[in-house]
């Protein structure tokens, strides 16, 4: 098992390197003059231009720049954000936990929700029950998250006043301990709910297909011929076997969710990586953009590794095969 993990981790290394190089190259290909972008809509004094170009070594040959960037990134230096006037790494490290929090809480609700709906629709013998749930799930999935977010805000925040409309917490907070958690929870509730509904419906569809597939397997007939009840069969033989595809999809989805749910973070002004990305693109803060993308790529690679491991734990056939 340990060998399996190390092997997968080892394969990921060259991938990371390639991603860094490709991202930097793309950054270089973006049209526009970084010095001009820094100054804004004013003519750039030649002396200033020269100083900047020397400071950031913009006139070095391209390959030298790539080399410098890659070695810097590998040492944890993602460059400096002109717009925020601070190192990109610090910026990412500040934003990332918020995105991770939102994604984790969203997934913590989305996965059980999706599994429950998937199992209900997949195992029911009533065509009506299946249709009602499946259609509702499809409609909920079809609602764009930003609009769903706004609907939730309009209803739960503006009309009922149960939750704040946006942000991650009050500007000044006097709450301590558990009260503080509750206060933060109120800010987290709506974006996490929008997140959970959208992802949960996607998981429900995957789970339903997978449950139906599992039910057609021979070992379900064996289980029936053993005299097990419906509930026992679903709990022991259907749930685990049909959650395998869900692990894959949820793992990858979580990986990409770590790059920030851009629309959702914008709607709720949730200052995570997604919002950072949008702001940085708007302000042409290229090094930050690249930094966020590299971070996201790392997150996806890491999640894939986790999915592989989880898969091996759930399915003994992979353990011996790998």
């Amino acid at each position: 098992m340990l060998r399996f993990i190390l092997q997968r981790a080892f394969y990921a290394l060259p991938l990371i390197l390639v991603i860094i190089v490709v991202m930097f190259t793309l950054l270089h290909l973006i049209p526009g003059d970084p010095v001009q972008a820094l100054v804004g809509d004013y003519p750039v004094p030649p002396a200033y231009r020269q100083a900047i170009e020397e400071k950031y070594r913009l006139n070095d040959p391209f390959l030298t720049q790539v080399w410098n960037y890659v070695t810097a990134v590998l040492q944890g230096d993602f460059g400096y954000s002109y717009q925020n006037q601070r190192p990109v790494l610090g910026l990412i490290l500040e934003r990332a936990p918020r995105t991770i929090l939102l994604a984790s809480v969203g997934f913590a609700f989305a996965i059980p929700l999706g599994m429950a709906i998937g199992v209900i629709t997949g195992t029911t013998r009533s065509a009506t029950t299946d249709k009602i749930w499946t259609t509702s799930a499809l409609i909920a999935y079809a609602i764009p998250t930003f609009w769903l977010g706004q609907l939730l805000v309009m209803f739960f925040a503006l009309r009922l006043g149960w939750f704040p409309t946006q942000g991650i917490g009050p500007l000044v907070s006097r709450a301590h301990g558990f009260d503080w958690v509750l206060e933060r929870g109120r800010y987290l509730a709506l974006p996490a709910l929008a997140f959970a509904i959208h992802e949960g419906m996607r998981f429900a569809r995957i789970m339903r297909a997978s449950v139906i597939d599992t039910l057609s397997q021979g070992y379900i007939i064996t289980a029936r011929s053993k005299g097990l009840t419906r509930g026992q069969i679903i709990r022991r033989h259907v749930l685990r076997n049909s959650s395998l595809p869900l692990v894959t999809v949820a793992g990858y989805a979580f990986g990409s969710a770590l790059s920030g749910a851009v629309l959702l973070e914008t709607v709720f002004t949730w200052p995570g990586l997604g919002l950072l990305m949008v702001d940085s693109i708007r302000l042409r803060d290229n090094l930050t953009v690249v930094g966020v993308v590299i971070f996201s790529a790392l997150a996806v690679i890491l999640m894939n590794l986790l999915v592989d491991i989880l898969y091996a734990l759930l399915d003994p056939r992979i353990r011996t095969g790998g």
Partner: peptide, 29 residues
């Protein structure tokens, strides 16, 4: 179900691999 559980009838099938749950140990099954 009671008949299947005890003193009734059982069944074995053509393809034993497909009719055994791949994720459970044999003893448990």
């Amino acid at each position: 179900r009671a008949l299947r559980r005890s003193q009734g009838f059982s069944m074995i099938f053509q393809d034993p691999l497909g009719y055994l749950n791949p994720t459970h140990r044999v003893g448990r099954q």
